[in-house]
């Protein structure tokens, strides 16, 4: 029988680095990433699971960190937007496509859009526009009207299929 704990020890590998942290029950993963690990690339837009600006990857699947309670993840492999770049500091192909195609304006929605695109393209290398729209359905962007985001996802799909075009 487990005792009731006032704080919970979690062991996470975050962007490849192992962390042992004490987290308070009730706190969101978003709060812990931002406040305890200083990973501020994951953003707060609503805290109710509607905007997607807080998206991260937990154990290989994308999730909204504002509505994942940190204490419920005793061991987890977590990837944040900061962990998308290669170790050499180069943007991943999906990131590069979003930059080249001016996918974003303010970029505040980037975590949701990038992770959604990454998960979509891992499963559906050649998505239709409808599939792109439905993959982005968990995230809001207020700047772009989504046109440039769609274009960026299409470009990312091309880049992933043919990493070295010439």
């Amino acid at each position: 029988m487990d005792d009731l704990a006032q704080s919970v020890l979690v062991q996470w590998r975050v962007n490849g680095v192992l962390h042992e942290l004490d987290v308070l029950p009730g706190l969101s993963l978003l709060d812990v990433l931002r406040e305890q690990l200083n990973l501020t690339g994951t953003h707060m837009g609503c805290m109710t699971g509607h905007c997607g600006a807080c998206t991260v990857m937990i154990d290989g699947r994308i999730a909204k960190s504002c509505i994942a309670q940190a204490a419920t993840l005793p061991r987890a492999e977590i990837r944040t937007i900061e962990g998308l770049m290669g170790p050499d500091g180069r943007l991943s192909p999906v990131q590069q496509a979003f930059w080249d195609e001016a996918g974003f304006q303010c970029g505040y929605c980037a975590p949701g859009m990038l992770f959604s695109a990454i998960e979509l393209l891992a499963e559906t290398p050649d998505p239709t526009d409808a599939e792109i729209d439905s993959a982005l359905a968990g995230s809001l962007c207020r700047c772009t009207g989504y046109q440039s985001l769609r274009r960026a996802v299409r470009a990312a799909a091309r880049a992933l299929k043919d990493p070295n075009p010439d």
Binding site: T40, G41, T80, E82, L84, L91, W99, D100, F104, L114
Partner: peptide, 20 residues
């Protein structure tokens, strides 16, 4: 493509609430 566009894509742009 925008000069300042790389930072948010890398998760490196610093918005107001990122300062402590």
């Amino acid at each position: 493509r925008t000069l300042e566009g790389r930072a948010p894509i890398a998760g490196a742009a610093r918005y107001s609430s990122d300062f402590s």
